[in-house]
Design a binder for these strands. Sequence first.
RNA 1: GGAGAAGUGGCAGAGUGGUCGAUUGCGGCAGUCUUGAAAACUGUUGAGGGUCAUACCUCCGGGGGUUCGAAUCCCUCCUUCUCCGCCA
Length: 424
Amino acid sequence: MLQLNYIRDNKEEVLKRLAIKNFKDAETIINKVIELDNDRRTTQKDCDAIKAEANTIAKQIGELMKAGKKEEAEIQKAKTADLKLREKNLDEALKSIEEDIKNLLVQVPNTPSIKVPAGKTPDDNEVISEHGAKVTLAQGAVPHWDLTTKYNLIDFELGVKLTGAGFPVYKGKGAKLQRALINYFLDKATTAGYIEIQPPIMVNEDSAYATGQLPDKEGQMYHVQIDNLYLIPTAEVPITNIYRDVILKESDLPIKNCGYTPCFRREAGSYGKDVRGLNRLHQFDKIEIVQIAHPDKSYETLEVMRDFVAGILQELELPYRVLKLCGGDMSFASALTYDLEVWSAAQQRWLEVSSVSNFETFQTNRLKCRFKGADGKTQLAHSLNGSALALPRIVASLLENNQTPEGIKIPKVLIPYTGFEIIN
RNA sequence: GGAGAAGUGGCAGAGUGGUCGAUUGCGGCAGUCUUGAAAACUGUUGAGGGUCAUACCUCCGGGGGUUCGAAUCCCUCCUUCUCCGCCA
């Protein structure tokens, strides 16, 4: 959520930036918000004045009662009836205005950073760099959904029986590979200074709201209605919410957390090869990295996080590229996002395996995650996060790119974790 | 799940209807003293709205109510603790 004061002071700039995100109703909404905020201020002033008067009278009554002047107290009491009524009306008006403002504000996406290129579709994303040679596969190479069956690594049909489509069952070396990747990713992150967190994988409404899943993305989460809890779509939700309603010390920054969790997404998606096999699932595993950073350092931090993820892909010997997302392809809450994509040789396409974003104060404003600066002032921190990494597409590209007539070769760096060098 | 108790500022802990946004201690910060540090002493130390700045307003787990007036009384929800039951 954007900060109201920031919108007031920088209206033109905000509109200009929102245009880069192709946000249509920007001007109407922003104008309405400012208008409502003016209303709010005058209403609150009126309300405060009445409350001040009522407070004064109440104090007087107290003193009169103490002095034993009952009759005078009664006269004062009579004065308050009217005040109370006006106070109640203004209080209600104020609440309703505040709610209107909030309802509008949650519709407005984050303003993109000046570094974000204009554009509408993924085709407009900027390719920053490309690494590693695209593998040429031997004759007879197949996509991962055939490999997982051939080597009995993942049983998609069994998942359908147990739960439904999009809930695969990993078996044998397939299961071990999952566990190896999780441990490897967590080791990389903790070595890089991230503190490991094992959070709940269900969250309450407050948490889902604070990181922006609610109110508008409600349908994308699994909702346990009887207890009003949500299955997390990413570890970002519980981990970032650790810092909800927290005032940090400047010296606490940056906070670096990582965590492995299963992630749950209801999003139905389209059918066909885009969602086949591991490309899109309802339940998958992911290691997430989160940082709470000083506003002056957050963009520097974003680059470091991006390069950290790239380093993992490098170690896994996967060909990858780094994209800077254009305004149209960025998420609602992000100010700047880098995507990392891995080349899938058998599918002949790039697969998004990580998304690293700086949210600036967009999340922390809702979270009320602040820090006390050297000047003693409390201000919002910046939040960032990235996948490091999501397993399914990494598994897909590992299987596809490393397939040989003898079997699937495990990258060197993973062998200590898997305990085997080849899947055959 | 049943019975009882409790939730106050970074922490501990007073406050049971009137001048309480809240005594006090610890911690934090600043200063005095010291070559420096410790100790001691002095001052300072919650958040939000509002204002050029003051005033002023709101917040004592969350929400609602009683009252001229609520941290204090009532209702409700949440959480924690103790005991009982069940259980990985």
